[in-house]
Design a protein around this nucleic acid. Structure first.
Lengths: 234, 234
DNA sequence: CGACGAATTGATCTGCATCAACACAGGTGG
DNA sequence: CCACCTGTGTTGATGCAGATCAATTCGTCG
């Protein structure tokens, strides 16, 4: 909510700088700048030149890809400690998608040149990067399989579970996600109408409860059952 | 077809070993083994421990992911010079998908430990790996968008074009791809029935010609028009 | 309060999956 | 050399999940 939460310990706990010698986190720290965005802010745009590498410190960010007709898909949701906006650095120098803050969000960023310098200087970062991108590619491939073999209800369940996994402290009474119906639709590859119907059914079944631009997971076990295709186990 | 086609020049021309000092390609060469597979052979299985890193030298290979019900999706098609089977090395040590030879195929392979040793010894390989995985992630994300925003005919066109791009020498009379109707269906996220109907229509329109377990692209321009959503431009 | 974006919910439509029946090629073995 | 079998492909008929359209309500904020 307030002053800069950026410390060497935070960097050491991020996915990208894990395992870096103290000298490295110190250097990265000095070269970073901190930026805070309000909900709904576009952090970078699809097709724009990559100016920075980004590390989310607080809040939630969605990565959205659009086609020529403006139809959108959320390709990834970012939580604190995760890196984003670095793909384009190693391909064509352009952001392949846009980033939008889902809630008030604070990020650390490095200028592109500074960042690639760090990667070359500290091989741990390069290996972390390989691991990260491999994990994401696996996730993307799993989603590809889902999109062509599973039905909408399963895909919505998957989308929520995937985001919920690794959440720190489940709040009493459920896990609250800052996702609108449209967000959920773009995660699951459906329409907001269908997403709304699915959530209404889950509301009645006591599986999840939803409000304006947010969803609360009440029974992750039931969601897992739905996601794996078993007909809702009571 | 015959003797080992593995030379330092071949390695230097591959996506993974590009830019490596001669010392490195020599070392990689000495540690590689060559394996040839007949059409239809399963090169590795989904969920099995990663034993090798693979580099395709000749032929075509598909990477297929299955769910619990056995429904399949082709997540990638491999052409000569491309690396495959390395994702799992950096995640959980298991192959996330299976690899099947689409035609007679020859690969070079390295034991997992040998390979990661090479990667650590030669930082060029690590950077190549980052670049490669980033490119594939971009492709996977583009496919995700397609799957949820485009119709079957566009997706089939995309699937063929994506495979056709970068093909060396277009044969006289068209580009022949060793893909069955089922393969095309699993690339486009549809059924072989629908894939067959689409190809029949294209056959009539002179856009593509298909036979048993193969398709020939006759008019890439027409495919591109379809893929971008324009109603078939004559 | 007024206005606008988010969500709901019923009615209707349709793209494509599914099912079924058949055709054809190639390989295998008697 | 033929009979058979299995994998591959085609094509018509039918059904349905979910998209689309339309109308209304709700929440939030200026």
């Amino acid at each position: 909510m307030n002053a800069a939460p950026l410390t060497p310990a935070v960097l050491a706990g991020s996915d990208l700088f894990r395992g870096l010698p103290a000298r490295g986190t110190g250097e990265a720290l000095r070269q970073a700048s901190l930026v805070t965005h309000t909900r709904g802010t576009r952090i970078f745009s699809q097709g724009a030149p990559v100016k920075h590498a980004h590390l989310l410190l607080r809040g939630r960010v969605k990565i959205v890809q659009s086609n020529a007709q403006g139809e959108q898909v959320i390709v990834r949701l970012i939580r604190p400690g995760e890196t984003f906006g670095t793909l384009g650095l190693y391909v064509d120098g352009l952001y392949p998608a846009e980033a939008v803050a889902l809630s008030e969000a604070t990020e650390a960023r490095w200028h592109a040149g500074t960042f690639t310098g760090l990667v070359q200087k500290y091989p741990e970062i390069a290996l972390n990067l390989v691991r990260l991108v491999c994990e994401r590619l696996q996730e993307a491939q799993a989603r590809l399989r889902e999109m062509s073999t599973e039905r909408v209800e399963q895909r919505v369940a998957n989308a929520l579970l995937r985001f919920a996994v690794r959440e720190k402290a489940p709040e009493r009474g459920g896990l609250r996600l800052p996702l609108s119906r449209r967000d959920i639709a773009e995660l699951a590859g459906t329409t907001m109408y269908t997403a709304s119907r699915v959530l209404t059914a889950w509301q009645r079944a006591g599986i999840a409860s939803s409000g304006r631009a947010n969803v609360t997971i009440l029974r992750p076990d039931a969601l897992a059952a739905i996601s794996s295709g078993r007909p809702s186990s009571q």
